[in-house]
Amino acid sequence: MKMEDAMLFNIFFGFVLPWIILFVLWRKFPEVIILFVPLGIAIAFVSNDWGMNIFWYTEPYIEKNESLSAFPLNLGYFPLMACLFVTAIMKYQFSRITLIVFFTIFFSVVEYIALVFGRVHYLNGWDIIFTSGIYLAGFVITSVYANLLSKYKMLSLT
């Protein structure tokens, strides 16, 4: 896939499509979008800035700005993950631990599919188990933040 096509792929599937889904969620859960999109973006940028080109890189590889290919994902896909997680907490009566484990496994499988199709490449011994740990940490942080917002009556989780 040419670099331009690969980047258009990231923009569509990493940014445009997630924001279409976020817009649908906005109509029913605007507080989730307002409160958790910034958290999802922050978690994405921190983890990707920490690990990009040390432990992984995404296609297309852009030599002068290696993290540019993940930029649409940082602004769309990863915030969507946080919002879907909080929406599930609010909508379903599963235990928080069950939801954290489910979302960690689900999004690890999505990343594994990206790995198989060559959209993500691991370096220096990194593997899907380590990736799952990053996702687990992100969902735990999101859960703690949701509890904090609920405690201060800024978000109703029930």
Score class of each variant (00 low, 15 high):
residue 145 Y to C: 09
residue 55 F to W: 14
residue 27 R to L: 14
residue 62 I to Y: 08
residue 108 S to F: 00
residue 141 I to W: 01
residue 81 M to D: 04
residue 66 E to Y: 10
residue 20 I to K: 13
residue 28 K to S: 06
residue 141 I to D: 02
residue 122 Y to K: 09
residue 107 F to I: 03
residue 99 L to E: 01
residue 68 L to I: 09
residue 41 I to S: 13
residue 88 A to E: 02
residue 25 L to A: 08
residue 111 E to W: 04
residue 136 L to N: 02
residue 130 F to V: 02
residue 58 T to R: 14
residue 133 G to T: 11
residue 47 S to P: 00
residue 53 N to M: 06
residue 98 T to E: 08
residue 53 N to G: 00
residue 58 T to H: 14
residue 96 R to Q: 11
residue 42 A to R: 00
residue 63 E to P: 00
residue 90 M to G: 11
residue 46 V to E: 06
residue 70 A to F: 05
residue 91 K to T: 11
residue 142 T to M: 04
residue 81 M to Y: 09
residue 133 G to F: 12
residue 41 I to L: 14
residue 143 S to P: 01
residue 91 K to F: 06
residue 63 E to M: 07
residue 25 L to C: 10
residue 108 S to T: 08
residue 129 I to P: 00
residue 24 V to I: 15
residue 83 C to A: 14
residue 155 L to I: 11
residue 130 F to W: 13
residue 29 F to Q: 08
residue 17 L to N: 07
residue 24 V to L: 15
residue 53 N to F: 03
residue 148 L to R: 05
residue 53 N to D: 06
residue 25 L to V: 13
residue 7 M to A: 07
residue 9 F to A: 04
residue 32 V to Q: 02
residue 151 K to I: 01
residue 80 L to A: 08
residue 11 I to H: 10
residue 29 F to M: 04
residue 145 Y to P: 03
residue 13 F to M: 13
residue 123 L to C: 00
residue 104 T to H: 03
residue 5 D to E: 15
residue 6 A to N: 11
residue 1 M to L: 11
residue 128 I to A: 03
residue 132 S to K: 06
residue 41 I to G: 10
residue 65 N to P: 00
residue 51 G to S: 11
residue 89 I to V: 08
